[in-house]
Computed example of a mutant assay.
Amino acid sequence: MKHQTLDQLHAIAEVEPSAPYSTLTRNQRIERWAELLERHPERCLGTLTGTEYLDWEARDVARGDGSAISVAFEDPVFRTLGLKDDTYGEAKRFFEIADWQLHEIVCSCHVGATMRARWAATRVRAAISGNRIFGWLRRMIAR
Rank of each mutant, 00 (worst) to 15 (best):
S70A: 14
G50I: 08
S18A: 14
L102W: 11
N131L: 05
A19T: 08
R139T: 07
T23C: 14
D85H: 08
R63W: 15
L6D: 15
D55M: 05
T87R: 01
D65M: 14
L102D: 05
Q4A: 14
Y53V: 09
C107A: 03
L36P: 00
L81T: 05
T87F: 03
I12A: 01
D55N: 15
I105W: 10
D86G: 01
Y53N: 10
G112F: 00
D65V: 15
W100I: 11
D60W: 03
E90F: 04
L37T: 02
W119Y: 10
G82K: 01
L102C: 05
T5I: 05
R39Q: 12
A13D: 10
T25A: 04
W100H: 13
R63V: 12
I69C: 13
D86T: 03
L54M: 11
M115V: 10
G50F: 11
Y53P: 07
T23H: 15
G46I: 04
G50E: 13
G66E: 00
G135A: 10
A113K: 09
A91S: 02
R125F: 02
H40R: 13
Q101I: 05
A72F: 02
I133K: 07
M1D: 15
A91V: 04
I12N: 06
K84R: 09
W136C: 08
R43T: 07
R116Q: 14
A13I: 04
K92N: 04
R32F: 03
V106M: 00
G64T: 13
A34Q: 02
G130V: 06
I105N: 12
W33Q: 06
L6S: 13
R43G: 09
G46E: 10
Q8G: 12
D60E: 10
R118N: 13
E52A: 09
T87I: 06
M115Y: 04
A127H: 10
F94E: 00
C107I: 11
A113H: 09
L48C: 04
A126P: 14
E57S: 15
G64F: 08
I141F: 13
D7H: 10
A68V: 02
S108F: 08
A120W: 09
G64M: 12
E96V: 07
L37N: 01
M1A: 14
E74T: 10
A58I: 06
I105L: 02
A62M: 09
G112C: 04
E74R: 11
V71H: 02
C107D: 11
W119I: 14
S70C: 12
F95M: 04
R125D: 06
R59Q: 13
I30Y: 02
R63E: 15
I69A: 07
S67H: 02
V15L: 03
E38Y: 01
I30S: 01
A72Y: 02
R123D: 08
P20T: 06
E38D: 10
T25P: 03
E31Q: 12
G50H: 14
R39W: 06
H110D: 05
D86Y: 01
A126I: 12
W119G: 11
Q28Y: 07
H103Y: 12
A142I: 05
S108P: 05
W119E: 15
R39N: 08
G46Q: 05
T114W: 12
E16V: 15
D60V: 05
L48E: 01
A121Q: 04
A142F: 07
A11G: 09
I128C: 12
T47D: 01
